[in-house]
Write a protein that binds this DNA or RNA. Structure first.
Lengths: 346, 346
DNA sequence: GTTTAGCACTCAATATGCGTGAGTGCTAAC
DNA sequence: GTTAGCACTCACGCATATTGAGTGCTAAAC
């Protein structure tokens, strides 16, 4: 059987309607639309075909049809065109990034909030994956007899510190010098590219301090990589607004899975590799969200994709609009972060 | 009417039963308990009295009685005795604090998790309110032409840093000296006690840098006070397990209010002043949780109460057990934090 | 005077049955 | 190929019993 233009048109009409109403769509509903020139009977025949082809499902014999995952996939891949946001929407997004945001954490939280408030879905934002960022300086500041503060300043101007234990007998002076040596050696290296082997390049006074350097590197790296818990959620309860989750059991299962964050972290990390991603229903790896869709986008600092964010919602999501919104928010978010770091840098 | 021993006994039986079952308790149910020597008719009479006195409510004429807020208040104040946790429970709690926890954030998150997993309620933990902690050192480290890192080391060994802009023309040397002056002046002061006025005490080379100092103080203070967003939640979906929230609308309203965190922050900040607090139903200020109970406890670093944590659940909460659990967790939490800082300190 | 057995009554919750309407598939005519 | 028409299906809503847990009251028993 052929998926001809008319079938396509009818399928789109069904998807459009179902996204809006969440109720199975009947042939008459479609026939009544002004832009369709066929009777309900004809449409019924086409719908039967579409069902055979796997694009439509029927909850029970006397109900209308609902689009299958396959239909949404077709829609996203070939039918859909990127929606254009209204001026008001664009302004809404920009406004929420216009006031001063000092901390990365704040920006992340703000993004999650804006995202869920504008899409009305559950949003998630992965904090910037800073280990991919380049080093600029390492300062070692003694703060106690056997303790020092390792301060890492990145290419992008961001700093992180962590407390490390100093080996016995190392003078504050030696510490400062060590900091300088390390800075010179690793300036412009990515944090996750520095391995213990590379310390071999540094000889002389540092050579004996392998264990110390190793501990330091680990400590610094740990403080830079935010880990599972750095997924910021917002609007989790939006889920409860969609009729597909009016069943308590389902809603609870989904909310519990989301609250866990593990899965989200995995998905978002994965998603950092592609500018946009759309996972529809059963395409999702994780059992607990096989009846949801997940749409993500990335954000950048400068031109490096450094994190991702997205929404979780029912499969009858308005993909076109969501993608447009993600695009716009990604733009604003990238700008804010880039400015933030540009400013630090100069 | 008098609240005699028998009424008390019956009331307690009703509360016990209702906490367990969440269904209105009838006179026969109570009469069947082996430790009650009265017939259902007698109990019915007493129950009518208790209802008149405001300790019981009746959802409708042909239903049993449920305890009122007033009854729970009486229970908590006079009837209840602190439960004793089983060895297994105590071990469960201790085990979850036994492995290495490096960061305060980790400890806070861990606490929230343990709390909700053991109580099966929604838990919340207010991050340590560090502005109440005493300063030890202030380091000022230049990191760029016009930028420096202000590192604050507290009495308790914790460090925080923030980037500040250096006034034009200040040499790295002057900066270091300024750090030393400030350290000497404010060592052992509480961060929230340092005001701009006190800078008057510092004259000489610092005198002209008022604006700079002010900015620095503000910046440091900001990085120390965690703010509204520092309420860590866990087990929000536990709420959905309780039949009192099987109504979607109610559940959504409550979850939304909790997700907001604003209210929780207010309550927990308040609660930091008292070792334990119990707010039953309508005793809560906030409209959205007037049918929940909130139980909190504080935790300490050394002997200073520095934060609080607690659970939100239905009013038919098992207060005795919850209080015992909060006590035990508070103990472990305080120990971990105190050790963490003791260790840093030495 | 207090307690209890007995009984009539109430009312939410559950089950039962029926009408309604949205929707289908099929067939025959256009 | 398209469409009108018709018989059929089935979830949903509604009204009507049925049930049973629980009450309050009264009168007898202790």
């Amino acid at each position: 059987m052929e998926l001809d233009a008319r079938k396509m048109q009818i399928l789109q009409a069904i998807i459009d309607d179902y996204i809006l109403t969440a109720t199975p769509v009947g042939s008459r509903t479609i026939a009544k639309r002004s832009d369709i020139g066929f009777s309900s009977a004809t449409i019924r025949n086409e719908m039967a075909d579409l069902e055979d082809m796997g694009y439509l499902d029927q909850p029970h014999t006397s109900a209308g049809r609902i689009p299958s995952d396959k239909a949404y996939r077709l829609y996203v891949n070939t039918i859909m065109q990127r929606a254009k946001l209204s001026d008001a929407e664009i302004r809404y997004i920009q406004d929420h990034y216009s006031h001063r945001l000092d901390e990365v954490d704040e920006v992340v939280k703000q993004t999650a909030w804006v995202l869920s408030s504008i899409t009305k879905y559950t949003s998630m934002v992965l904090a910037p994956q800073l280990h991919a960022i380049k080093l600029k300086h390492i300062h070692l500041v003694p703060i106690a007899e056997d303790k020092a503060l390792a301060i890492v300043v990145t290419d992008a101007g961001m700093t992180r510190d962590s407390i490390i234990r100093i080996p016995q007998g190392m003078s504050p002076d030696a510490l400062t010098r060590l900091g300088r040596t390390l800075s010179a050696r690793f300036s412009n290296c990515r944090l996750d590219e520095i391995t213990l082997q590379q310390f071999n390049g540094i000889t002389g006074e540092v050579a004996e301090q392998k264990a110390f350097l190793d501990a330091m590197l680990r400590s610094v790296r740990k403080s830079m990589s935010p880990g599972v818990r750095s997924v910021e959620l917002s609007g989790a309860t939006n889920i409860l607004n969609y009729p597909e989750y009016s069943d308590m059991e389902r809603a609870r299962a989904l909310l519990t899975a989301i609250e866990e964050k593990d899965m989200l972290y995995r998905m978002l990390t994965e998603a950092t590799n592609v500018e946009f991603s759309v996972h529809i229903g059963a395409e999702n790896e994780d059992e607990s969200i096989k009846d949801c869709s997940v749409v993500t986008a990335t954000y950048k600092i400068g031109s490096n994709p450094i994190g991702s964010f997205g929404v979780i919602g029912p499969t009858r999501m308005d993909y076109a609009r969501v993608l447009a919104m993600l695009g716009q928010i990604g733009k604003s978010l990238s700008e804010v972060l880039t400015n933030m770091f540009e400013e630090e840098r100069k």
